[in-house]
């Protein structure tokens, strides 16, 4: 079981882990949160639809 943990117990000289830096940066999260669905859902979906051959 993990012990209760607060930032006050941390060593102030310890480097901040990458994941915490990511989670503490709302604007980087905003970029990722918009770009991932824009590419995976919207862009890919629209490319799929535009790739459907037109009926003659």
């Amino acid at each position: 079981m993990s012990a209760p943990h607060t930032p006050q117990e941390d060593d102030p000289d310890e480097p901040i882990p990458f994941m915490q830096q990511l989670l503490d940066n709302p604007f980087l999260l905003l970029f990722l949160g918009v770009m991932v669905p824009m590419v995976v859902y919207t862009l890919w979906g629209v490319i799929d639809i535009l790739s459907v051959p037109l009926a003659r």
């Binding site: 990722l32 949160g33 991932v36 639809i49």
Partner: peptide
């Protein structure tokens, strides 16, 4: 943040274009 919005696709599971 990364993946929840992608659930939108389940509305289009019966659509032929995608």
């Amino acid at each position: 943040i990364l993946f929840l919005q992608l659930a939108s696709a389940h509305h289009l599971l019966a659509d032929p274009g995608v």
